[in-house]
Simulated scan of single mutants.
Amino acid sequence: MKQVLHIAASPRGAVSHSRQAAEQALAALQARSPIEVILRDLSEQPLPHPDATFVSASLMPPEQRSPSHRLSLSLSEALIAELQAADAVLISTPMHNFMLPSVLKAWVDHVLRPGRSFARTPLGKQGLLTDRPVAMLMACGGAIGNGDQQDFASPYMAYACQTMGLHNFQSIILENCNRDAAARASSLTSLQKWQQGWPW
């Protein structure tokens, strides 16, 4: 049975537009074939931001790490292992002030590690993870572009994933979630079309 890692970032629980969209997407995948869903709820269990010990440990060779260094990286190791075990990754998140919520940025800071998920080479950073589909469902209260708000979250997350070797990345933006019902319905139609073609 294939495994999907669902990373949920919205603090709004059942009323969250991004969580509702993720539930629809996961139900559509289940309808094709049985899947195991692993939920990493960053709102219910927020991750600590990297501290000085974490940063030092992540930058030094593994053989030089002390027990406290290894302990500081233990959560990061668990999160990277969780990512490696998944056949596909579904991220559901709101847009906060044109960017990712801080809880999702903290997740990136734990999994995007030199020598672990990417290597430094003379030609630049090289991803160390095996590629797999990654989709980000991002809910926005208003519209994107055309004089409205800008999306800095999608290019950032795409670059972070590519750095780790995850090149099969898609960002699906659910616009106008806090506007009228017709605008929300249009976003849901776009979501349904995407669900039918998501690579698996």
Rank of each mutant, 00 (worst) to 15 (best):
M1Y: 05
Q3V: 15
H6N: 05
H6M: 00
H6P: 01
A9E: 04
S10E: 11
R12M: 15
R12W: 13
G13R: 14
A14R: 15
H17N: 09
Q20C: 02
Q20G: 11
Q20D: 05
Q24F: 12
Q24N: 15
A25C: 12
L26P: 07
L29G: 00
Q30M: 08
A31L: 01
R32A: 06
P34M: 12
E36H: 08
I38K: 14
R40I: 08
R40C: 07
D41Q: 08
S43W: 06
P46R: 07
L47S: 11
H49E: 07
H49Y: 14
A52T: 15
A57G: 05
A57Y: 00
S58E: 07
S58C: 04
P61A: 08
P61S: 13
R65A: 07
P67Y: 05
P67L: 04
P67D: 01
H69L: 09
R70C: 14
R70L: 12
S72P: 03
L73P: 01
S74L: 10
S76F: 03
L79D: 13
I80N: 02
I80E: 05
I80H: 09
E82A: 03
Q84S: 15
A85F: 15
A86D: 09
A86C: 03
A88P: 00
T93A: 07
P94F: 00
P94N: 05
H96M: 13
L100R: 02
P101R: 02
S102T: 10
S102G: 10
A106K: 01
V108S: 02
G115D: 09
F118H: 04
A119N: 05
R120Y: 14
T121H: 10
Q126G: 02
Q126F: 15
L128R: 01
L129E: 11
L129I: 10
T130K: 14
A135E: 05
M136D: 08
M138Q: 11
A139T: 00
C140G: 01
G141M: 11
A143C: 07
I144T: 09
G147D: 13
D148E: 14
D148L: 13
Q150C: 13
P155A: 11
P155M: 09
Y156C: 07
Y156P: 09
A158L: 08
Y159H: 15
Y159E: 13
A160N: 00
C161D: 06
T163F: 03
G165N: 01
H167F: 03
H167K: 03
F169E: 01
Q170S: 14
Q170V: 15
Q170F: 11
Q170A: 13
I173R: 02
L174Y: 09
N178W: 14
R179D: 12
D180H: 13
D180R: 06
A182S: 10
S186D: 14
S187N: 06
T189R: 14
K193E: 10
W194H: 02
W194N: 03
W194G: 03
Q195W: 04
Q196R: 13
Q196Y: 08
G197F: 10
W198M: 05
P199C: 14
